[in-house]
Design a protein around this nucleic acid. Structure first.
Lengths: 159, 159
DNA sequence: ACACTATTAGATAATAATTATTTTAAAACC
DNA sequence: GGTTTTAAAATAATTATTATCTAATAGTGT
């Protein structure tokens, strides 16, 4: 934990940014909730415990900054809010997500899986891939059996 | 074109909805711009040429309805607007997109490509896949050579 | 054709997320 | 220590989308 904070501090200062107390509090909240996919509002509420005087705009600015420096990733699950998660250290690419259409839970797929497909796409479409986003929408193991007509669930929920 | 309008009319009436003049105008705009990824605002402006009295709320309602009936798909490219596109007729799954980080152009990948991966994911994660979204972010063939440091482009743009 | 009922549209207000602005405070640098 | 720069706070503004409420329209049965 401390190592990672220190590392982020270095990443910031490498671009002439400082790890202010507000930024540090925000980073710590993100680190402490690494498995979740927090929205700016979520982060704001959690950060307030550590630093009650912080403003929502500061949280937004910090998240934007961390995102610019590619320390965190922005995610969009189509629910109208941007979510944030730490970029896996050293990982070339982003991992993937499983979104349950029944309960809304988001699980992670930590394998890349797309390697061969990317090679094919780069060749066929003459497109240089830098990043990707892959999300599967369906029924998670917890909801299996509870859902009678899965197709009905898709509707306008998926984006 | 007329066939497709007629077909949509049937899909609507199968669920007790009518193809009102406003809805028809909206559908026609979507059909005429099938290659694009229009936002609600885009659709609204285009529909106004055909039916100047239409309201923005009606366009939103119509898009939501078409989306519920799975006649169109909602898309989210992380630019803060929901975009819409026709669902390929008879296609089991959604196709994929190539987004250029330099010029913003969105190209289509019409092949599915994910078949084997889905089988693997369903088995390994005990997750029943109903739909998916796959987007590659990078440099399109048009911008190739124009971009010196592609990695720089990622930043906070990708969600 | 006519009244009746339900559906849909229009207009506009409300909401919600995010961004911009303006002022104030903190830090860094001579 | 005074000055310049950088970031934060507070709040206003913007933008996309949704909700509300009334009026129009279209079927339905008589």
């Amino acid at each position: 934990m401390e190592d990672r904070v220190k590392q982020i501090k270095q990443q910031l200062s490498a671009h002439n940014y400082k790890l202010t107390p507000q930024r540090e509090a925000t980073v710590r909240v993100l680190l402490e909730n690494e498995e979740d996919h927090l929205s700016a509002e979520d982060v704001y509420l959690l950060v307030k415990d550590k630093a009650p005087e912080i403003g929502l705009a500061t949280v937004y600015r910090t998240l934007e900054l961390l995102s610019d420096l590619q320390i965190i990733h922005k995610l969009n699950f189509g629910d109208g809010v941007t979510r944030y998660e730490f970029r896996a250290e050293g990982a070339e690419h982003h991992h993937h997500h499983l979104i349950c259409l029944n309960c809304g839970t988001v699980d992670e797929i930590m394998e890349d899986l797309l390697g061969p497909i990317e090679v094919q796409v780069e060749r066929e479409y003459d497109f240089q891939i830098i990043d990707h986003r892959l999300t599967f929408h369906g029924i998670c193991h917890r909801c299996k059996g509870k859902v009678t007509d899965p197709k009905k669930l898709v509707g306008s929920k998926v984006t």
